[in-house]
Amino acid sequence: MASQGTKRSYEQMETDGERQNATEIRASVGKMIGGIGRFYIQMCTELKLSDYEGRLIQNSLTIERMVLSAFDERRNKYLEEHPSAGKDPKKTGGPIYRRVNGKWMRELILYDKEEIRRIWRQANNGDDATAGLTHMMIWHSNLNDATYQRTRALVRTGMDPRMCSLMQGSTLPRRSGAAGAAVKGVGTMVMELVRMIKRGINDRNFWRGENGRKTRIAYERMCNILKGKFQTAAQKAMMDQVRESRNPGNAEFEDLTFLARSALILRGSVAHKSCLPACVYGPAVASGYDFEREGYSLVGIDPFRLLQNSQVYSLIRPNENPAHKSQLVWMACHSAAFEDLRVLSFIKGTKVLPRGKLSTRGVQIASNENMETMESSTLELRSRYWAIRTRSGGNTNQQRASAGQISIQPTFSVQRNLPFDRTTIMAAFNGNTEGRTSDMRTEIIRMMESARPEDVSFQGRGVFELSDEKAASPIVPSFDMSNEGSYFFGDNAEEYDN
């Protein structure tokens, strides 16, 4: 783990906690998980779902989305002020799938948001429990990260689609708070800032007046979040320049895209947490497990152990491969979309394939898809080993990566060399080191050039047997250095459309 220093740990961010010791953190995270579980059980009762239907990941996603929508204050306010045809701002819903006479049927349900809020609060001892809501947002974000390569979004903001390893959390809503900021990748933060800068260039009043003052505060806050992700002084200094700019424009845009590229080699610290679907927490609570009393951590053995003992089902389209669908969801559960496939294969105990080789589309089923041909199958979400999630980018030494994705962002704290394609990355730096950030740029390029592919990161860190909950005997895996390590390699994943 990167030293926490003055930073709060993510469990504290996750639970809005002030400084807590490890036991208190485990208890408050457990409380959050228990609340999600209780809410899910109650919703299944309301909807009269069978046990099997309640364990269907598509039903879980609909129920999670309903509660997130019920608590989305800004959108609710907007919907009330701008009524649109056929949208009731006070209601929320989605597809629920039921097994009827041996076939899967889709039923569109509609609930009062007020009623959903009441059920959620009741499951969370009367609190709004925003930490639990954020947790579900991060699960949705991790699922998107594993399912889609955001080529269009990258290109629109002047970045290269091969930089997708920097895009963790790119679909997280803005209201996801400190826990959300911690899991956002460098590219995601750059993209958010670039969008602001572009608006400022096109709209003279963007930075002016009372609204402009708020915009400015948001801009500086985002700059500080991004600065905190960088691990070298030169990158941090460049972020200070971007933040202090009187009138952010093209120079800042250039600096930010430069920094994003540099992060492929001088990786930023991005938190990883295993956020599971509500249909995993519900049955665990129903079986009598007391998360608050037992304590829970999002970055240790607990999620692995929970998945070892969970039964989750998914709808499967006619030509999809259930094992591939399982891999997709497994990666999402562990926030591992940008991790090295060699490491993932070792931990999972079966070969993890790149996205383009998977015969599976996303987990969600569109409303126009034919239910007649839908089957369902068990998702295999178990693992051979477990490993500690990392909050750091690993040290800054790398190795060759593949054509589709030119770097990785480690999820697990496991000893290995970190793949990246130096030639491709360095070719993108057209040696432009003039301007006010020239000395920093020169320094950053120097550090990137001296990074050695064969150097090892996370020295001495290994994986653990599932029986080793105290992480007492690390097993340090050895990897084939020459092997392909990137998930979005030469990829044809669908595009994420909101």
Rank of each mutant, 00 (worst) to 15 (best):
M1S: 13
S3A: 11
T6P: 02
T6V: 00
K7F: 02
K7Q: 09
K7P: 00
E11V: 06
Q12V: 04
Q12D: 14
T15R: 00
E18Q: 14
E18S: 08
R19P: 13
T23N: 12
I25V: 14
R26S: 08
S28N: 13
K31T: 13
M32T: 09
I33K: 05
G34D: 11
E46N: 02
L47D: 04
D51Q: 12
E53G: 08
E53L: 04
R55N: 06
A70G: 14
A70Q: 03
F71D: 11
K77S: 02
K77A: 15
Y78E: 02
E81G: 06
H82C: 14
H82S: 14
G86S: 11
D88V: 08
K91N: 11
G94H: 12
R99N: 03
V100P: 15
W104F: 14
L110Q: 11
D112T: 10
W120D: 04
Q122A: 00
N125Y: 08
D127N: 10
D127V: 14
A129R: 09
A129L: 12
T130H: 06
M137P: 01
W139K: 07
D145G: 10
R150F: 04
R150Q: 04
L154N: 07
R156S: 08
T157W: 01
Q168G: 12
Q168N: 09
S170I: 09
R175D: 04
G177D: 06
A179G: 12
V186Y: 04
V190F: 02
M196S: 11
G200R: 09
N202A: 15
F206Q: 13
F206S: 14
F206C: 09
R208K: 11
N211K: 09
G212K: 09
G212Y: 08
I217A: 14
Y219K: 06
R221V: 05
A233H: 01
A234Y: 11
A234D: 09
Q235T: 03
A237L: 08
M239Q: 00
D240L: 05
Q241M: 09
Q241A: 05
V242G: 01
S245K: 01
R246V: 06
R246W: 11
F253Y: 11
F253D: 02
D255Q: 06
L256P: 12
L256A: 11
F258D: 08
F258K: 05
R261C: 06
S262A: 13
L264E: 10
L264W: 06
I265D: 05
R267F: 05
S269K: 07
V270A: 09
K273L: 01
S274L: 00
C275F: 08
A278Q: 05
C279S: 15
V280N: 00
G282V: 01
P283S: 14
F291Y: 13
E292K: 15
G295R: 11
Y296D: 08
Y296G: 05
Y296P: 04
D302F: 05
P303R: 06
P303H: 11
L307D: 02
Q308W: 03
Y313R: 08
R317V: 00
N319W: 00
N321A: 13
M331L: 15
A332G: 15
H334C: 14
F338R: 05
E339R: 00
L341K: 01
L341C: 11
R342S: 14
V343S: 00
I347M: 10
K348C: 05
L353R: 15
R355A: 07
K357M: 10
K357H: 14
T360G: 06
G362W: 09
Q364C: 14
S367F: 13
E369A: 10
E375Q: 15
L379W: 01
R382W: 10
R382V: 04
R382K: 10
R384A: 05
R384S: 06
Y385H: 14
R389Q: 05
T390S: 15
G394Q: 08
Q398N: 05
Q398R: 14
R400I: 02
A401W: 01
A403I: 04
T411A: 12
Q415R: 10
Q415G: 07
R416N: 02
D421A: 14
T424S: 13
I425R: 01
A427P: 08
E434N: 08
G435D: 03
T437M: 07
S438E: 01
M440E: 13
M440D: 04
T442D: 02
I445G: 03
I445T: 10
M448V: 08
A451L: 05
R452Y: 14
P453A: 14
V456T: 08
Q459V: 13
G460N: 02
F464Y: 10
A472W: 07
P474F: 09
P477Y: 01
M481E: 07
N483H: 11
G485W: 15
S486F: 11
Y487I: 06
Y487S: 03
D491Y: 12
D491K: 07
N492W: 04
N492C: 14
A493E: 10
A493V: 12
A493W: 12
Y496H: 11
Y496F: 15
Y496R: 02
D497P: 02
